[in-house]
Design a protein around this nucleic acid. Structure first.
Lengths: 353, 353
DNA sequence: CTGTTAGCGCGTTCAC
DNA sequence: GTGAACGCGCTAACAG
């Protein structure tokens, strides 16, 4: 009787030794499947006696509810998708830890996918997630992507943008106040007497890239410094390009006395260039970076940086997304800007005179 | 007619605007659902004329097969679980990129979960994944975990261990040859004349921790150096503890002239301690670390390190796992050890005399 | 309060 | 070659 659930229909029967269904439980507890389902749902309206019998049967059979079958019926899978640009960019793991914690707390699991900032990969990721019927998507969007075209104008499933703002104005998003962060950082440099400040940028096709650049330019103008176009270089948010262009920048006839790198990767690239040219930091050149990575506080010189609340961003993102999923009627889009923080360390000093 | 698929049964009906089923397609193409299913499966035995009509109907309706329903029938979800210790340890993102690439290439999606090396969280992760009916699990296992007790003696679903070897001898695993890597690294130090070599270890409850320690001790003995127990300190594979114990270590009356850190995080901790004590590296003290992280090559001094093929490990892990899932009859467990690589850079120099 | 039953969307027989 | 009918495991509606 107990072994009655063993099938022998061949190759794809991998799961069968453990395939105890609600029906077997019902049979063993001598109740109906409906009652078992009620017990599962924690319904109050089950006589304690029966509840006890059902629970015992479950234990004896090592019953495990099948979430897939449940999903088919309830039309929700209790899964989310998280689409990021690149997991090896140290910013995203922290964000994802936050998202995971919030998701698990609400009973959701997370599919994670990378896009390498390629629109076609974002497209693929979104449609894979939709086919898997995830209940919602956390998205670090990519330039040139068209989310609406693959998810439809209604955004099905719902999407919350994190880290970068969407092209669509009607969606939720959680981002850092990048302009403010860039202003804080540039201000710090200006206040130390720097007037020739280079900017190793990310892509201006990204909201983060644009806003950080804007903040930088804004402060320069306020300080009466005419922005020198030569000082703004395109670092693609990646280490290698940043390394190359910083080297070029520092080899100019009248090089900057300080460099502001648009994220941790470009900061590392800039640092490599500085070292390689035998420059001392901060005596010869100051360096400040957007993103506070674990090693910012460890490497020599310790890096002045703008810290983003990455964990918080992920946590909030997942929470907003789940609220959106579970809401009864559509509420107004949430637009959240998180406050960045300036950590002044040894990589920035007074401008050499 | 087209709008016939719109439901209006209330709150959980979020998906309904897009819920085109195989039935609607059949109706529109004026064929039976069986035929549509055959077209979907790419069966040859469908008249071209009908196939054309079906495909057109699919396009017109923007039909999207429901993977959930398919899973329920085929008893496979085309999803994998990846359970790692901590995403913010820079080793794992690379591993996961490899796993993702291999998985996507075979049509699988990846759930990712962290355990923070806590057995109860591993347990939870495994049972969540099993309830979601993932087809297989990639596992960076944790000390004190009991995989068999939550997945059963048969390992359902199948598990491939990565990075760390399992307690169970009958499972597949893909790891680095840690002992060899540690030997290479220690050998390098010994060959530069160091005889007092400190080891900032990870947990010896982990295979990686044990094996790296073993390799280190082995080389010392071969070189006729009596291992000094004081020189082996427990760094927990984390930055903070490593920082503290390295400081202690360097404050000994007769401190080591070289330090071997068991992974990148302990390496960073050790470096912080070295800087803080005002020691010069490598003149006063040499530092070598296990794990080659992006910044190993950037920070000053550039770090001598042991590189592990993390991407490859993830890729292979997913491939072995999928092979295991799809195999007709159980084959022998695969045990793969990947070769580490020594990168000699500036953080290691000759022993001071 | 409990049992029965009709689907959820798809794949898979079999008759035709 | 095609299509009707059944079942995967579960939930929910309804009858008792």
């Amino acid at each position: 009787m107990i072994a009655a659930c063993w099938h022998s229909s061949g190759a794809n029967d991998r799961l069968s030794p453990a395939v105890i269904t609600i029906r077997e439980v019902a049979q063993r507890a001598k109740v109906s499947v409906g009652t078992v389902s009620n017990v599962l749902a924690g319904s109050e309206s089950v006589r304690p006696e029966l509840r006890r019998r059902v629970e015992q049967a479950m234990r004896e059979l090592d019953y495990q509810p099948n979430e897939i079958a449940r999903s088919l019926k309830t039309r929700q899978t209790k899964t989310l998708g998280a689409v990021v640009s690149d997991l090896t960019n140290p910013f995203y793991p922290m964000l994802l830890r936050g998202a995971e914690d919030a998701a698990l707390a609400r009973g959701y699991l997370l599919f994670i996918l990378n896009t390498d900032d390629r629109a076609e990969l974002e497209q693929r990721a979104l449609s894979l997630l939709r086919a898997r019927k995830v209940d919602g998507i956390l998205l670090v969007t990519t330039p040139g992507s068209d989310v609406e075209s693959t998810l439809g104008p209604g955004f099905v499933p719902p999407v919350v943008f994190v880290d970068r703002t969407p092209s669509s104005p009607t969606a939720d998003y959680i981002v850092t106040d990048n302009r403010r962060g860039a202003r804080m950082c540039t201000n710090h440099l200006v206040s130390r007497g720097h007037r020739r400040i280079g900017f190793v940028s990310g892509s201006t096709e990204l909201s983060t890239g644009r806003e950080r650049l804007d903040g930088y330019l804004e402060v320069l103008r306020q300080a009466g410094i005419e922005p020198n176009p030569v000082f703004t270089r395109h670092g693609e948010f990646r280490l290698e390009p940043a390394y190359r262009i910083t080297k070029e920048l520092l080899l100019e006839s009248s090089p900057p006395t300080a460099i502001f790198a648009a994220n941790s990767l470009t900061g590392l690239g800039a640092l490599k260039a500085i070292h390689e040219l035998g420059l001392r930091c901060p005596q010869d050149i100051s360096l400040a970076v957007f993103d506070d990575v674990p090693f910012a506080d460890v490497i020599q010189p310790r890096l002045t940086s703008i810290a983003q609340p990455a964990y918080e961003m992920g946590r909030l993102g997942a929470e907003v997304l789940i609220a959106r999923i579970e809401e009864k009627e559509r509420s107004a889009p949430k637009r959240i800007e998180l406050a960045p923080e300036l950590n002044v360390r040894e990589s920035t000093g007074p401008a050499p005179r």
